[in-house]
C-alpha cells in the first residue's frame, strides 16, 4: 500500500483524532492513502463512522495492543 501521508494522533482524546484526520485528509488527493495512528479507545468506531459519512474508504485497521492504525483512502 502506498501511503501518502501519516498522521500521528497518539495520546489525543476525543474529538481531536477526528478533527486532525479531517484536516490531514484535506491535504491529499482523491485516491491517495492517509495513515492515522491513534490510541483513543473510541477512535475505532469514531473513524469508521466518520469515513462512512464523509465518503472516504477505510481500507484497513490494525489493532496493536491499543494502538490503532487506520488506512483511509480519500474519496
Amino acid at each position: 500500500m502506498n501511503i501518502t501521508k501519516t498522521l500521528d494522533a497518539k495520546g489525543l482524546a476525543c474529538p481531536m483524532p477526528i478533527v486532525k484526520t479531517k484536516k490531514a485528509i484535506e491535504g491529499i488527493e482523491s485516491g491517495q492513502i492517509l495513515e492515522v495512528v491513534a490510541t483513543d479507545a473510541g477512535a475505532k468506531s469514531d473513524l469508521t463512522a466518520w469515513c462512512k459519512s464523509s465518503g472516504h474508504e477505510l481500507v484497513n485497521i490494525n489493532d496493536d495492543q491499543g494502538v490503532f492504525t487506520f488506512y483511509i483512502k480519500k474519496g
Binding site: C14, P15, I18, V19, T21, K22, W50, S53, S54
Partner: peptide
C-alpha cells in the same frame, strides 16, 4: 466537543 466533531463531519 460535539460542535468540533460535527465540524469535522
Amino acid at each position: 466537543i460535539i460542535a468540533n466533531g460535527a465540524a469535522a463531519y
